[in-house]
């Protein structure tokens, strides 16, 4: 492999049911910075069925080129049709960098592709930069829940692949005046390899909440205790126009659902205000919320690690403080 042949920054523009996922726009924002540093182009790979209209959004958010693969087999995601389509694009276009969102789709597709292309894949990157002298991609990711960071490089293989979790990078504002091209890319699929059939797609209301979009999060942990305790948090979230979220302990206890979980195995959030109530602050949790602008923690244990990252800490009983605060805010 002559790595000098591999150029441009490619983004897997994940769409579901004809809706571009925010993470794809966030990746385009980062790809724009990387491509500008390399003096190369940003290319979005858009896969689906009947999704041509989405290309304009990708251009407005930073893509110079959109490679469109439109095929009925790409309507609902399964691994193999998507892997074949992107492999065909990579073989033809030779990208230097390929970024995917660390969604259930990206985390399924990324490693399958990395193996097929015999290249490296760095998961859940929080920073991506170009090393000036070598023009290689520097991929920084947290280890052990975020306190230890490792910068990883893939110097001898292409494309350099990373996944990035939703909410980590910032999308650039849409610019309707941006110009870009759209290429209808044809793939010769080997349909005999399509061996997984999706029989049913079920949406659950509880999974539709998006805590990553909330400006205010009222988050509860083990100290909240029960569903009864969680109601106090919901009342506070309501007066602040925010959402409730939780640590893993509350999800494991069945008090709230996984879609509201903040942390390494949940979501990464960066709200304006994050209330950490009865959350001790395991590093897995801190990894998901320390980007919040203002963190206010209430905990009975004055040695709780959450106080290490909080802007304001209150040692006290959340079951008294939260209702009192809610009442005061209502006035």
């Amino acid at each position: 492999m002559n790595i000098a042949d591999y150029k441009n920054v490619y983004v897997f523009a994940e769409q579901r049911e004809g809706k571009i996922q925010n993470v794809a726009l966030e990746l385009l924002g980062k790809a724009r910075d990387l491509a500008d540093a390399l003096n190369e182009k940003v290319c979005a790979v858009l896969l689906g069925s009947g999704i041509k209209d989405l290309a304009a959004t990708l251009i407005a958010h930073g893509a110079d080129e959109v490679l469109l693969v439109d095929d009925p087999s790409l309507d609902v995601y399964t691994t193999e049709p998507y892997a074949q389509a992107i492999k065909a694009v990579v073989d033809a276009k030779k990208p230097g960098i390929l970024l995917l969102g660390a969604t259930t789709i990206g985390r399924d597709l990324g490693p399958r592709l990395a193996a097929r292309m015999q290249t490296g894949l760095t998961a859940d990157c929080t920073e991506l930069d170009i090393e000036a002298e070598t023009r290689h991609l520097m991929m920084t990711r947290p280890a052990f829940g975020g306190n230890l960071l490792a910068t990883i490089m893939c110097t001898d293989h292409r494309p350099q692949m990373s996944t990035v979790r939703p909410g980590v990078m910032m999308a650039k504002p849409a610019d309707a005046a941006r110009k870009g091209t759209v290429e209808d890319f044809k793939v010769n699929f080997d349909r005999s390899k399509f061996r997984v059939k999706v029989e049913k797609v079920v949406k659950e209301q509880k999974n539709l909440v998006d805590i990553t979009a909330a400006k205010v999060l009222v988050s509860g942990g083990r100290g909240v205790g029960s569903a009864e305790g969680f109601k106090k948090l919901e009342a506070l979230a309501q007066v602040l126009g925010g959402e409730v979220s939780s640590s893993r302990a509350m999800v494991d206890a069945g008090v709230t659902e996984h879609a509201r979980q903040v942390g390494q195995t949940g979501k990464t959030v960066r709200p304006d205000l994050y209330f950490a109530l009865g959350i001790s602050g395991a590093i897995q949790h801190l990894a998901g919320m320390e980007g919040a602008d203002l963190i206010i923690a209430v905990n009975k244990d004055k040695f709780a690690p959450i106080f290490e990252v909080a802007d304001m800490g209150i040692v006290g009983d959340l079951h008294k403080i939260v209702p009192a605060l809610t009442a005061a805010l209502k006035k």
Binding site: L148, A150, I152
Partner: peptide, 19 residues
């Protein structure tokens, strides 16, 4: 194909006041 170039600890954010 991937190699760890360096690893480092994130500088702990200055903790706020605890009351």
């Amino acid at each position: 194909p991937t190699k760890v170039k360096k690893s480092f600890t994130k500088g702990a954010k200055a903790a706020g006041k605890v009351f």
